[in-house]
Amino acid sequence: MTATVDWAPVKKSYESCRVLDIDKLMLGEGEILVVAGANGAGKSTLIRLLALVESADEGSGEYKLFGEPVNEGNRLALRRRLAVVWQEPYMFRRSVYENIAMGLKWRKLPDGVIAKRVKAVADLLEIEDLSQRAEKLSRGWAQRVALARALALEPDLILLDEPLSALDRQIRARLLAGLKPLLSANGRSTVYVTHSATEAAGLGTRRLLLAQGRRA
């Protein structure tokens, strides 16, 4: 079985300050890796590197994603097989529907397929008003839309950076229960960053605890 993520070692510095230094990172198909750690532990940096929106330091090993070594030629194609929910997601100045559909349009999917997928994820995440302006949403609702936007892509790897942190405990527990089966469905792999020990306990098949950029 091909590992979804195979990367050893992973190093990242900003202005000669090392923020991430992990000996080895492996994630198999269908696995959920829960990444925990205090603020500044390097969790969000790890998500940015895994999402191919930032490059690791030269001293890092080769990043193999879905079994393919990442290079400039396949970066976009590999990026289109993953999805990310950032801790502070950005809502584009358009409707909630358009926000959820954006990545699908960029992949040039037919309108009928897009409409079906948007409806399915909106129902799952209890998003009713798809016509409202997304940039006016509260942080909690923005997180729901961001989650819907990521799930609609039906990615092989989903990277979640504290995706439910702005929601109150009850809603978070309810959404998480509905979400859990989706995170490992059809061989999908997930990296889930969280502060909450309860969330971590209920989710992960594997754990990575970070402290000051290193495995704790």
Binding site: A51, L52, V53, A83, W86, M102, G103
Partner: peptide
Amino acid sequence: DQRIRLESLALGASTGQ
């Protein structure tokens, strides 16, 4: 907002998109 670039890339945008 700097997040637009990150969000767009993560959603699979090409350079033109």
